[in-house]
């Protein structure tokens, strides 16, 4: 445990800072925007796709290649679907006279 913290101390600082940034960022969001916000955040955690690309780019066995392919497809679905759906929701919030 201690070893883990020591090895990753920089990242742990980053984690703690980001926790506060995340809370600060959406502290005063009007409830009107909750659904788009959730959807937008959903797209952002699609960043997990970076990991799947790295895994796949280093895959050697057929099995990891197949699983990696699947992971990249799913990650892309999360990213693309997430951003497009959010955009569709927000498109409707244009100010109208």
């Amino acid at each position: 445990m201690l070893e883990f913290i020591n090895e990753n101390i920089q990242l742990i600082y980053l984690v703690i800072l980001m926790i506060f940034v995340g809370i600060e960022l959406i502290g005063h969001v009007p409830s009107v925007l909750h659904t788009p916000l959730m959807s937008g955040a959903n797209a952002i955690h699609g960043v997990v796709i970076i990991g799947s690309i790295i895994v796949m780019g280093q895959a050697e066995h057929t099995l990891s290649l197949i699983l990696g392919f699947l992971a990249v497809v799913l990650g892309t679905l999360n990213v693309v679907g997430g951003f497009v759906v959010t955009d569709r929701m927000l498109e409707m919030f244009k100010k109208k006279k």
């Binding site: 960022l25 959406i26 916000l37 955040a41």
Partner: peptide, 10 residues
């Protein structure tokens, strides 16, 4: 982590 914390607050 941003989504983790913002999502929890939401």
């Amino acid at each position: 982590i941003l989504v983790g914390s913002a999502g929890t607050l939401l």
